[in-house]
Design a binder for these strands. Structure first.
Lengths: 243, 243
DNA sequence: CGGCATGTTGAAACGTTTCAACGAGAGTGG
DNA sequence: CCACTCTCGTTGAAACGTTTCAACATGCCG
């Protein structure tokens, strides 16, 4: 099922601004928990893996045996509902970690949006690291805690914001995470359908809102997958619901 | 600020069906992590505490020093938005645990809805327990993981369900958690405003939907805080969006 | 080039919010 | 006991935003 290839050289991180490149020889489980590289001892069964566009990283109801860290690309975490619709729970960008689960089976599905490079770490290694290293333990909890906080942000967005606010907030988050200055284009890592499914809208509504933002000269859309912020202040105002 | 009283006898758990009563002498941090009582050794600085109706348990931006387990009553976990609105992130019922946070400060507020009895456990004790006991470590992760899963359920609800589905799902969850048979009344632990803020609706919409369910004889509402399910199958159908 | 997935736009139907008015119940004090 | 007040819940009508269904446009790839 899983489409795993060990890449020759995982050193280039084109989309990853907050994450320093890690030499292949130092890619270990320990790195999984670190923001910056260091020279801690190597631990077995860790690896960088690649997934092609649209491949499933894990599925709902699968056994949960690994967790991951995004090196390059974007991953969508979603649930399929009984009515066939899909809700995207989170979108993971470079430096985000995901896949910790304490139940035996996955409660959601993770898929590569474009081509993706991940760092993978076995849950068994984590348990071992947890036993040995207090700071890893802390990191684990912090990771889950951060996921929870993000889910709560998402709840607030879906519970109390209109479509326009949701789109604007999301664009701002993306621009920020890519360190993109005003006036320069940044990548939209997802298509319109994913955008809509993440924001709890239909694809048509998402489209219309983007068109409206374009025609009010708040953003420009040089290509389907790129956005330029033209008026940051107005975008921020729209994100918080003013006018 | 905090309204803490050590109760004489925390043995009666009127609202708590899934939770076995714990003798006062055995209320320890270890109990915090257990589903059923046992005779593990007592550990210091744990306590049952009470909060009166509407009192704050902790506030957004407070230092995070304790976590809690509901013994009796209901707690709402919410965020106040910049526009003054409020989103309720979760409602904790007996046996639910909450308040684990790895950042220094709270990202949300917890308040007693009615009068509440809680078990409290210091984060420092948790760190200690984490170091000593692998199974506590596992429980901690499981607790956070369960919170995340609940938050994701909430996201799905807000992202893809209509008002009626949200209300029906919530009523079903409540009836289930109280082990209430069809035809008997169960408590609605929250008022209409809280119901609306949890489900991402206005109070008027929540009201109208309840009235509609009442007039279609799916539920009956003997008092403001009580519900009787008259037609379980139809309530379940409505919860999953079938007509 | 055709074929297919993806994105865009329009108009009507639908659900939710808003604003406003009114009702029901609990607690207080005369 | 009643009248008063305050909070909480209920209902109506118009305004608003979103969805639905349909048609059409764009880009990509064999």
């Amino acid at each position: 099922m899983l489409q795993i290839t060990i890449p020759r050289m995982p050193a280039e991180h084109a989309f990853c601004s907050t994450h320093s490149p890690i030499p292949a020889s130092l890619v270990t489980d320990s790195h999984f928990f670190q923001y910056t590289s260091s020279n801690s001892p190597a631990i077995a069964d860790s690896a960088t893996i690649q997934f092609e566009r649209k491949k499933t990283i894990y599925s709902q109801h699968d056994a949960a045996r690994h967790c991951y860290k995004v090196v390059k690309g974007a991953v969508r975490n979603s649930r399929i509902l009984t009515d066939g619709h899909r809700q995207i729970l989170d979108i993971f960008l470079p430096a985000d970690r995901f896949g910790i689960e304490t139940g035996d089976t996955r409660s959601s599905t993770a898929e590569a949006i474009g081509d993706v490079v991940l760092l993978r770490c076995a849950h068994t290694s984590i348990t071992r690291l947890n036993a040995d290293q207090p700071e890893t333990r802390q990191q684990m909890l912090a990771m889950l805690s951060r996921s929870l906080c993000r889910a709560q942000d998402h709840i607030v967005m879906l519970g109390h914001q209109r479509g326009e606010q949701r789109i604007c907030s999301f664009l701002l988050r993306l621009a920020k995470s890519q360190g993109c200055p005003v006036g320069e284009a940044f990548d939209l890592p997802v298509g319109r359908q994913d955008l809509a499914d993440y924001l709890g809208l239909t694809i048509e509504t998402a489209c219309r809102i983007l068109s409206r933002l374009k025609s009010s000269r708040i953003i420009s859309v040089p290509s389907r997958r790129q956005i330029i912020i033209l008026a940051l202040a107005r975008l921020e105002a729209a994100a918080s619901g003013n006018i």
